[in-house]
């Protein structure tokens, strides 16, 4: 684990624990993410990957330990939670677009209602990001009229419209048909190249090799390994990671 220690962390988790009832879902997880870093999180099903990134914007609340995002400490204080959520964008496995709104409305609702942007300004910004993900021509349609890949790109644009400092991705391509995976990954690579700070749960190892600064391997709620992608993929330290990689690659 000779990865560089981040100097100016945008996100810092210190010994974070999380239970669901009696089930210990996160065990003393610590993690620092510097501005512009790309972190890939992988691990077997049920290992706590989703739980980990969902704690960062408090979609789940942790029980103990400390989470700092962009200088805000995550406690029960709703003001801090709101401030953090404005700075942290999230993309879900199942897209979670708002089906009753057009693509454009999906992208403008949060900037208007939570950042206080005017309609014209919000729409201009939405079109900018929809163009970036290459679907400006779909702005007037509804989510149900788009393909999965298009929906996920809208979800990315929707999150970007809040101009977040950090983006969280929870298996963004797992629900997609194989032929649509690439268009979403391409969008994410572009985002990475522009310097966005990213935490991404994914099993797309090609993508991980291409963009990751560090790979985090989780198992049973614990952070087992943290390494540069080259080192992790060619020479994983723990037997569990080795076993996991064998399964993913085959």
């Amino acid at each position: 684990m000779n990865s560089p220690v981040p100097t100016d962390p945008v996100i810092r988790l210190t010994e974070v624990n999380k239970h669901y009832g009696n089930f210990h879902a996160l065990r003393d997880v610590s993690l620092e993410v510097a501005k512009g870093e790309k972190i890939i999180i992988c691990g077997p099903s049920g290992s706590g990957k989703s739980t980990l990134i969902r704690c960062i914007n408090r979609i789940e609340r942790h029980d103990s330990g400390e989470i700092l995002v962009d200088g805000h400490r995550l406690t029960g204080d709703t003001k801090d939670v709101a401030a953090i959520r404005r700075e942290v964008g999230m993309v879900f496995q199942s897209f979670n677009l708002f089906p009753h709104m057009t693509i454009l409305e999906n992208c403008t609702i949060a900037p208007r209602k939570s950042r206080g942007l005017g309609k014209a300004e919000a729409e201009e910004r939405a079109m900018h990001y929809l163009t970036k993900v290459r679907i400006p021509d779909q702005a007037g349609k509804y989510p149900g009229q788009l393909s999965g890949g298009q929906q996920q790109r809208v979800a990315i644009a929707r999150a970007l419209c809040m101009q977040p400092r950090v983006m969280l991705f929870d298996e963004p391509t797992s629900a997609l048909d194989p032929e649509m995976v690439k268009e979403v990954l391409d969008t994410m690579v572009e985002l990475a190249e522009e310097g966005m700070t990213m935490l991404c749960v994914t099993h797309e190892m090609g993508f991980a090799r291409q963009v990751a600064d560090r790979v985090i391997f989780m198992d049973r709620g614990e952070k087992i390994e943290e390494a540069a992608p080259g080192a992790f993929f060619t020479n994983p330290q723990s037997p569990r990671a080795r076993e996991f990689l064998q399964q993913v690659i085959h």
Binding site: I59, M90, N96, F98, I109, A110, K113, S114, A159
Partner: peptide, 14 residues
């Protein structure tokens, strides 16, 4: 679906 509430919250909507 719970995802609707989660997406709204993640976007910073009150």
């Amino acid at each position: 679906p719970a995802g609707q509430d989660e997406a709204a919250a993640a976007l910073g909507l009150s």
